[in-house]
Amino acid sequence: MSTEAITQDIPGTIIFNGEQAMKGYALNKMCYSFNKADSRAAFKRDEEAYMEQFHLNAQQKAAIRARNVLDLLAAGGNIYYLAKFAGIFGLSVQDVGAQQTGMTVEAFKAMLAKQGE
């Protein structure tokens, strides 16, 4: 078994390792730039130009256009940097969790609360 296969054996989970770090570097670098308000504004003004500036590949661009978190993870995105992308749209981690699990936000919140019982 390869190291990669041993690492990625937890269902519904992508361990962000060197393989992912290489794959997602451009995407994560763009998302890291969203720490700055000017960068968020520049992205909102012209998404395509902004993605081009950071040399995103076609898979990463498509995932950004779709605002699809699972696709962004598959394209090498790291959740800590993707959170800054989600922040542009005012999304909470419950919104992001609901999208990834295919639940409504209310159902996702209820699922969280149930785990405290």
Partner: peptide, 13 residues
């Protein structure tokens, strides 16, 4: 806690 992936929302009390 887990924020990412299909297992997002996982908590193990």
């Amino acid at each position: 806690h887990q924020l990412d992936g299909q297992r997002a929302g996982f908590i193990n009390k």
